[in-house]
Nucleic acid binder design. Structure first.
Length: 639
DNA sequence: GATTAGGGTTTG
């Protein structure tokens, strides 16, 4: 029923709101808390709206009458508020219902009928209204992302929050702070639902029907303020439960096996819009739900499907025997996008961390988990030098200690007998006021001709770190040397044996046996100063730059500390360059913040798919199992 | 007639 007003309503864009004004607005719902009983006398609903001006407004709406508050089902719905008062709270504009407040709510999806949801018996609705709704729908389609939390049970993952549309099958009060709801949506969860004991509880609902539906039914515990609402719910009614939390729980049955069970909790409070709303039978979301329920009911009642029916109920037992422990993930139908991907062994089936923790080493596993935390937190501390031969790890020398080593080597003046040989042309500079320090640069020739500086290897005697770093940006390669008895020789291997651009190449002190500089003559005609080749002719075992980090991984079934030891495959950032490159350091930080976002809860972290291998380490008399990531890389589209 | 809540997840 419509009533056309004498003067048409005018609607204020959200960027033109003024304190104290009472206005009419049209906007898209960006966030909302479904109506709940406040601590005062009224129901309250908090609604944040946004319009084409991209200005947001959070509105506090109160009413003693639940039905008088906006009938919002999801983010993206469109609302019309009449007589909204604008006030200031914490230096920001805020909307609040004023006398005579009224609202209409519309589906926000393009192409759906423009039907107003309202409890008002009389309300205006004109061609102008229809245009306003259509215009906001068009704008929202490119500016408001569809709700990612609205899912079916078959799509839920552990450790997330969801808005669930379902039918109530049974209920029971557990105690004053917890209330059990048994619901279904016609689809089956990947992991079977936990079962809350209803022994000694007064249960309302058709238990034989619930038993027949078996794993199609999930148990939800709602807490605190939601208990009152839950009590009043009618069996058979259609519900939307907002910000329902899923948790995977491993239940130990005996020493050798455990069961994985998916828990559903509606925690106390109204944060993030936590709450329950009853959906009328006539709403379009219920239409789809009813179809799903009918289809599932029919399938359950067909005996041919009975084997399928018991599938997820029975196959989730994990045992130490190995083969049985991975089958549970075969039924994982909904592959969520992962922030890391496997580069090999994709055939491996996933193993939950709780199963890995019970097994002996060595083994290889494919896992799916979240990065709860990592060490070291200061990323430059994660770069180390690794000897591929003796596997020893060492710190990358700091600039200060490196300069000290170079200064110590510069105390001895260059020997003029070792200058201008067939291998190189030499030039010597004297410094002023630096205790007579001399710097000799030996330009390595190619067929007795000096190559272009960009292709030229130079040997430097007496140079300081800043000088070497300047020269390394001009010349292809730099080797710090000193005058020996019969030939130029490399410095102690505490110093780099080769510098190319920003990369300082070090050798292993244990594994190298230094050879004479003259050996470079075997390489000079090739004009390619490849670090591994240079190292070889100089008798050096080159150290490899690696990221060494500890990842604390959590998949909801268990927590596992895993090492990452990687030169460039995992992050796709060369560990050898990151220390001297601000951009690469920023990239690394971005990747870590993506995998382990600061200041948000782990539920919202992305999943990581990883290959890990276990191995045994003996420390004294203690044997410990360690785990290392391999053949895994950060997915390109997540960076 | 004022108050309620004032978005930003429990810890069962």
């Amino acid at each position: 029923m419509s009533l056309v007003p004498v003067t048409p309503y005018t609607y204020t864009p959200l960027n033109l709101l003024k304190e104290g004004a009472i206005v009419n607005v049209y906007a898209v719902v960006k966030f909302f808390k479904p109506p709940y009983l406040s601590k005062g006398t009224d129901y309250c609903s908090v609604v944040t709206i946004v319009d084409q001006t991209n200005v947001k407004l959070t509105c506090m709406l109160f009413s003693g009458n639940y039905e008088a508050l906006p009938i919002i089902y999801k983010v993206g719905d469109i609302v019309r508020f009449h007589r909204l008062k604008i006030q200031v709270y914490k230096n920001e504009l805020q909307g609040i219902n004023s006398s005579g407040f009224a609202s209409l709510t519309f589906e926000g999806t393009l192409g759906t009928p423009v039907t107003a949801r309202t409890s008002s018996k009389l309300f205006s609705f004109t061609a102008q209204d229809e245009k306003m709704v259509e215009a906001l729908r068009v704008w929202a389609s490119t500016h408001i992302s569809a709700s990612s939390t609205l899912v079916q049970l078959c799509d839920v993952q552990p450790m997330q929050y969801y808005d669930l549309t379902c039918q109530l099958l049974g209920k029971a009060e557990v105690d004053g702070t917890a209330f059990l709801l048994k619901v279904w949506d016609g689809t089956r969860t990947v992991f079977p639902s936990w079962r809350v004991s209803i022994q000694d509880l007064s249960f309302e609902g058709d238990l034989s029907h619930i038993l027949r539906l078996q794993s199609l039914v999930i148990d939800i515990l709602v807490y605190d303020n939601h208990v009152q609402v839950a009590k009043s719910l009618k069996i058979g009614s259609f519900l939307r439960i907002y910000s329902l939390h899923t948790k995977l729980h491993s239940v130990n049955t005996d020493t050798n096996s455990s069961l994985l069970r998916l828990e559903f909790h509606l925690h106390g409070g109204t944060s993030y819009g936590r709450g329950i709303r009853v959906l009328p039978e006539t709403s379009s979301c219920v239409d789809q739900l009813k179809k799903d329920l009918e289809g599932a009911d029919t399938a359950v009642n067909q005996p041919s499907n009975s084997t399928c029916e018991s599938a997820n109920e029975d196959n989730f037992e994990l045992s130490n025997s190995g083969s049985g422990s991975v089958s549970l993930y075969e039924v994982e139908r909904c592959q969520q996008v992962s922030a890391t991907i496997l580069t090999d062994h994709q055939y491996l089936e996933k193993t939950p961390l709780c199963a890995i923790l019970k097994q002996k080493a060595p083994q290889q596993y494919r896992i799916r988990a979240k990065l709860r935390s990592y060490m070291p937190r200061r990323l430059f501390q994660s770069v180390k030098l690794l000897c591929p031969k003796c596997h020893s790890l060492q710190e990358v020398p700091y600039e200060d200690s490196l300069d000290k080593i170079l200064q110590d080597a510069a105390t001895k003046a260059p020997n003029s007998n070792l200058q201008d040989t067939s291998l190189y042309d030499s030039k010597v500079w004297s410094t002023e006021g630096q205790g007579g320090r001399q710097v000799a640069v030996h330009f390595v020739k190619n067929d007795n001709i000096l190559p272009l500086s960009s292709e030229c290897l130079i040997l430097i005697e007496g140079g300081r770190l800043c000088e070497i770093s300047k020269l390394s940006s001009k010349f292809h390669s730099v080797i710090p040397v000193r005058s020996g008895a019969e030939d130029l020789e490399l410095l102690d291997l505490s110093a780099p044996f080769l510098i190319q651009g920003k990369v300082y190449h070090y050798g292993c002190k244990q594994c190298s046996s230094l050879k004479t500089i003259q050996n470079l003559s075997s390489l000079r005609n090739k004009g390619q100063w490849i670090p591994s080749t240079v190292a070889k002719v100089l008798g050096i075992v080159p150290l490899q730059y690696v990221f060494v980090m500890t990842f604390t991984l959590d998949d909801g079934t268990g927590v596992l500390d895993v090492y990452l030891k990687d030169s460039e495959n995992f992050f796709k950032i060369p560990a050898s360059e990151v220390l001297n490159d601000d951009d690469l350091q920023k990239s690394l930080e971005t990747i870590m913040d993506m995998m382990c976002p600061p200041e948000i809860k782990i539920d919202a972290y992305p999943w990581l798919e990883c290959l890990i291998k276990s191995y045994t380490v003996t420390i004294g008399t203690e044997q410990r199992i360690c785990y290392q990531i391999f053949d895994t890389t950060v997915a390109e589209d997540t960076i």
